[in-house]
């Protein structure tokens, strides 16, 4: 048991903000995945709205409240309605027999892996510098 606990230490108990952040981020991430993976175009648009609300919540958590409201006002009020209008105006794609994706999936995943690597590097360096500086300040 000790070895297991040493290898996989229990995560520290989250603070209140972290406890809010985790479900919010999960919601945003799942919605973002649905935007690109769901085959139904209208579901994509709804998931996009979910993502936008999640991002607005993240802004509120970052104490950028005006930005959170702007996000909802501009994105959810106008951009998502425009997208829905565009979906309705260009019908016929929804039930088409052709595949929803093109043949670039491999390339795209390669690109995302590269971005993920860069992001990981940033993550490590950011944790080593910025978190420490904040802890000092």
């Amino acid at each position: 048991m000790d070895i297991i606990q040493q290898l996989f230490p229990l995560p520290p108990i989250p603070t209140l903000q972290q406890a809010v952040f985790i479900p919010l981020a999960l919601f945003t991430a799942v919605c973002a995945l649905l935007v690109v993976l769901s085959p139904n175009l209208f579901h994509n648009a709804l998931a996009l709205v979910g993502t936008l609300f999640g991002v607005a919540g993240i802004y509120a958590l970052l104490e950028a409240e005006f930005l959170a409201i702007s996000q909802i006002l501009v994105y959810v009020w106008s951009i998502s309605t425009l997208i829905t209008f565009a979906i309705m105006l260009s019908r016929g794609m929804m039930f088409g027999a052709t595949s929803k994706t093109n043949k670039q999936a491999g390339t795209a995943i390669d690109g995302i892996v590269v971005i993920g690597f860069i992001g990981w590097c940033n993550f490590v360096s950011a944790r080593s510098k910025l978190d420490v500086s904040i802890a000092v300040a």
Partner: peptide, 24 residues
């Protein structure tokens, strides 16, 4: 809230989404 007025207008977007969802 110090964005109270805009908050009230932003809430209208939920009504719009629900109307679109119900209609579709």
């Amino acid at each position: 809230l110090n964005v109270g007025v805009l908050f009230l207008t932003a809430l209208g977007s939920i009504g719009i989404m629900s109307a679109l969802m119900a209609g579709w």
